[in-house]
């Protein structure tokens, strides 16, 4: 385990916080919006990292919780007129319950079987969102979700206030995720990743640990989904589709699983590639493919793994 000195950590946090405060005043609204999108996907990728990187459970259905929470928040805000303090927790609650139920089923398996059952369960959710037209709007989704209303008569109407709202929640979640992974509970998850049988032999109830991690992962993915509804102001079955689960999986792998910061960086890079490069060439998907191939060949542990190994090389044997 590498350790970072508290002074360096404090400096890093101070710089990051200062940057976050300055950004809205130096960026144009469009790029600020893109930063919010990056942050939302960073949270989504970090929530998956809790499963993949820390517990060793490769899920290909993580978009289910992202999408379910998005639908619940969108629907309650749209049809019942709920404000943020009701609609957002309702979404989180729904995704946590769904993660709990799906966890009961999925955690009976491991490896590629786990991958397949999570995929199947998320496609089930997608099928419901796609087919239940009267509730979800079917293929076209739910357009025109209201802006986040904090209290009667006050909504976050401009990009800057929404940026701070999203940044606050995502920074808090990032800190919580960091605390969770650094805690004895997190150490135990790492132990499960390395060897389940050994942890079992040591007397840990590994199912309970895995279940808790699974629900927590679903919960944070749900927060990302709810924020994404407020960001886009619509929700469609595309939020739950397997393509989105695969996309976030790639973000985690690109950045480096098991580091939290890595997946966040991976998310930022993919969102940037998708939106900046595509203005210049229609071959942007190919370019994205090249990036994946290069990372897989030369940095199998992701970008953070690459940086780490370069640092080690410089420091000498």
């Amino acid at each position: 385990m590498k350790t970072t000195s508290p002074a360096r950590m404090a400096l890093f946090l101070a710089v990051a916080a200062a940057l976050a405060l300055i950004l809205p005043y130096v960026l144009t609204p469009y790029y600020l919006g893109l930063v919010v999108k990056m942050m939302i996907f960073a949270l989504f990728a970090m929530s998956l990292d809790l499963l993949i990187g820390f517990t060793g459970m490769a899920s290909l259905g993580h978009a289910a919780y992202f999408g379910l929470s998005a639908y619940v928040t969108g629907l309650t805000a749209l049809t019942l007129g709920w404000n943020v303090w009701l609609a957002l927790p309702a979404g989180l609650m729904a995704s946590a319950v769904a993660a709990g139920l799906f966890g009961l089923l999925a955690l009976r398996t491991r490896g590629s079987y786990f991958l397949m059952i999570t995929l199947a369960l998320s496609q089930l959710m997608w099928g419901i969102a796609f087919g239940w037209r009267s509730l979800t709007g079917g293929d076209d989704g739910l357009p025109d979700v209201p802006r986040p209303r904090l209290w009667q008569g006050y909504s976050l109407t401009d990009g800057v206030s929404f940026y701070f709202f999203a940044f606050g929640l995502i920074a808090l979640s990032g800190w919580l995720l960091y605390r969770i992974t650094a805690s004895p509970f997190g150490q135990c998850l790492r132990g499960i990743r390395e060897s389940e049988t050994r942890m079992l032999a040591l007397g840990y109830d590994i199912w309970r640990y895995k279940f808790t991690a699974f629900v927590l992962g679903g919960l944070f993915a749900g927060l990302a989904g709810s924020l994404y509804v407020y960001y886009n102001r619509f929700v469609s079955p595309d939020y739950i589709h397997v393509a989105r689960s695969a996309e976030v999986l790639l973000m985690v792998i690109l950045g480096g699983a098991g580091t939290l910061i890595g997946p966040a960086v991976g998310a930022a890079i993919i969102v940037a590639l998708e939106n900046v490069i595509s203005a210049y060439t229609e071959r942007w998907v190919m370019l994205l493919g090249f990036v994946y191939v290069i990372v897989a060949l030369f940095a199998p542990n992701g970008l953070t793994g690459l940086i780490e190994s370069l640092r080690k090389k410089r420091a000498g044997p």
């Binding site: 469009y30 919006g33 893109l34 989704g141 595309d238 393509a243 939106n275 203005a279």
Partner: peptide, 17 residues
């Protein structure tokens, strides 16, 4: 890409950028 959220972000790019 035929995806609603990608499409919305791209329209924002065209309009705001």
């Amino acid at each position: 890409a035929g995806r609603p959220d990608t499409g919305l972000t791209k329209v924002k790019a065209l309009v705001e950028r």
